[in-house]
C-alpha cells in the first residue's frame, strides 16, 4: 500500500484519480492540516510493471540523508564482531533505497575507503549510484592513508560539518 500526504483538496483529487487510473483502491482521510490517501492494489489491478529499476528520488524534501561513519567497526562489543557488522552494513547500504546523498568517513572509518578495504567494492557501487563518499583529510593524514584512498574524495571538516547541519537526516550507525 502506498500512502500519499498532500496539503490541499485539489491535489488529493488529482492523486486519487491517478491511483484509480492505475487500478488501485483509493481511500481518503482528512487529518489535521492535510489529506492522507491510501492507494492499494486490488485483485482486479493490472500487473505492476516488471523489470524496471526501483524509483530513487534524486532530490526533494527529506531526501538529503547523510550517513556518518566514525569508526571502522559498528557498535560496542568485541572488535572482530564490530568490523564484520560494518562490512555487512556498507554492503547492504548499496542495495537499499533510497540511497543517502553523502557518506562521511571519520577517524578509523577512513580505512574503509582504502585499497585493501573489504568494502571497497560496495563503496564504489554507492559512488556510481551518485552517493558522495567523503573521507576526512585529517584522519587520512593521521593514519598515513592519503595515498592509499581508493574510493571517493578527501574532504575537510568545514564541508563535513556543513553537510551534517544541512541534512534532513543523519544516520550514524
Amino acid at each position: 500500500m502506498l500512502v500519499v500526504l498532500v496539503d490541499n483538496e485539489g491535489s488529493a483529487e488529482n492523486v486519487a484519480r491517478a491511483g484509480r487510473q492505475l487500478g488501485c483502491a483509493v481511500s481518503l482521510e482528512q487529518e489535521a492540516g492535510f489529506f492522507a490517501l491510501r492507494l492499494s492494489r486490488t485483485p482486479e489491478s493490472p500487473p505492476p510493471c516488471l523489470g524496471t529499476e526501483p524509483f530513487v528520488p534524486a532530490c526533494g524534501p527529506g531526501s538529503d540523508v547523510v550517513v556518518m561513519i566514525a569508526s571502522n567497526a559498528l557498535g560496542q562489543g568485541p572488535e572482530a564482531l564490530g568490523r564484520l557488522l560494518m562490512i555487512a552494513f556498507l554492503k547492504t547500504l548499496s542495495k537499499v533505497v533510497p540511497r543517502p546523498r553523502t557518506l562521511v568517513l571519520l577517524n578509523s572509518g577512513v580505512q574503509l575507503a582504502t585499497s585493501s578495504s573489504e568494502v571497497k567494492g560496495a563503496l564504489q557501487e554507492l559512488e556510481q549510484q551518485g552517493v558522495r563518499i567523503w573521507s576526512c583529510g585529517t584522519c587520512l593524514d593521521y593514519y598515513h592513508l592519503k595515498d592509499d584512498l581508493a574510493v571517493g574524495t578527501v574532504s575537510n571538516m568545514f564541508d563535513i560539518a556543513s553537510a551534517l547541519v544541512a541534512a534532513d537526516r543523519v544516520i550514524a550507525p
Binding site: N8, G10, S11, E13, N14, V15, R17, Q21
Partner: peptide, 16 residues
Amino acid sequence: YSDMGLLPGGLHRNRA
C-alpha cells in the same frame, strides 16, 4: 490527462 489526475490547482478553485 484528466483521467490521470493532471489537473491544475486553478481548476479545483474555479469549480469550488
